[in-house]
Design a protein around this nucleic acid. Structure first.
Lengths: 222, 222
DNA sequence: TCTATGTATTGACTTAAGTCAAAGGTTTCT
DNA sequence: AGAAACCTTTGACTTAAGTCAATACATAGA
């Protein structure tokens, strides 16, 4: 993201931004706190979520290293942010121990953006990616949980290191996965079991082995 | 959006972009067509939607005058778009007669973007707004249909001309509203009826009169 | 104004997914 | 290793929302 900045600019960022380490379960910000800037995940993982009135948690995004989060408000609420009248639009929590984050303060970033086209483009590309992701997510939410689960598993398999062996190491807890799939722990558990009973997958804690991709693909279609 | 362009630049846009008029129900693009650029709504209305394998329609956005759509791919798939290997990520259809759209071809726009910072910022702001919108949408999708409906009605009331009189003129069909709320026509119909039976609203075709905002607000909370 | 077409409603039925409560597994820390 | 804390699974029950099919209501066109 900052690959095209000169030394001066990098110095400016470093001197004004802080790197902090969080433990699993530690809150990064609440949706009641004033917005002070966005974050870059250096190590670990973060979930972005909201809590509905009935107490249910809804995960909107998982963010892993080299990606940013909470950057969208920068462009929509310029004035309010300057006046420190704006709060974060959701909550965020570290989901791994030793999650290292860099905070980029909004005032610093506004200056930078003025002068650097590349950053602007990178931001645009990042936002577009999230937008596409949410588009897909919305579409799938009106299908059954097993469809959503199958899609998730196939996505993970594609981005997995152990792709060839057909193994997925879940980076997130089952609870977070349920909240991300728009359901509850029990339902997720039952869906996983159903897949296991049909010899499509084998679940062992956070390790999921895919036995039958084609059935999984058929499930994902709906 | 183009307010800061000089004459030269505006000429370039006009000479290379086309304005077209569509009738209600007319398709603007399918998700199988090569991507050639994004659109600005000058008049009328447009829905962006996907069709799932079981034939159900899922509305992702409604777009009304002065707003753009199909702009996100520009930043994420630069190379593929240049090589004309990229298709639109969803379908779009006019939802009113006399819907006038301006098509901005991607190659023209890339040149423009290089030279003009303001456009870049406007794009960022537009994408951010959509992102926020989808975030909220996702959150509400895991609540009941009546909650989503109540939220929609309150939103519409706020942006309505006849706000004071407590009247909403639906700009979209009930079918589209159902698809947007992630449900089907019958369920929407029943939810509206329930609200009417409880003297919260009066529905008369596309005109909805709000009688009891506070009950509606309580419903919207979940 | 009347008809035709598309749009919206209703009823009877089925099913997926949520709730609550209890038991079973995993981690982690001393 | 053992206990505590946390995370996950299971069972019995309830409910919201989907399907199918028939009917009623609007709106635009002749």
């Amino acid at each position: 993201m900052f690959s095209e900045l000169d030394e001066n600019e990098m110095d400016k960022i470093y001197s004004h931004s802080s790197i902090k380490t969080y433990d699993k379960g530690e809150m990064i910000f609440f949706d009641t706190e004033p917005y002070i800037g966005f974050y870059i995940v250096i190590e670990g993982g973060v979930k972005i979520f909201k809590i509905s009135k009935d107490g249910r948690e809804h995960v909107i995004h998982f963010i892993f290293p080299t990606n940013t989060f909470a950057e969208a408000p920068l462009f929509e609420h310029y004035d309010k942010i300057r006046r420190e009248e704006f709060t974060y639009p959701a909550n965020s929590m570290a989901i791994e121990n030793n999650t290292r984050l860099m905070l980029i303060r909004s005032d610093i970033f506004y200056n930078l953006l003025e002068k650097n086209k590349t950053i602007c483009f990178k931001m645009l590309s990042g936002l577009s990616k999230k937008l596409r992701h949410l588009n897909n997510h919305i579409e799938s939410l009106s299908q059954g949980v097993s469809v959503r689960l199958a899609k998730y598993l196939l996505d993970e398999l594609n981005s997995s290191d152990e792709k060839n062996k057909g193994i997925i190491e879940l980076k997130i807890s089952k609870h977070d996965l349920a909240a991300y799939l728009g359901t509850i722990d029990e339902t997720l558990s039952r869906c996983l079991k159903k897949l296991q009973d049909n010899n499509v997958i084998i679940v062992k804690a956070k390790r999921i082995q895919i036995l039958d991709i084609s059935t999984l693909q058929k499930t994902a279609i709906g």
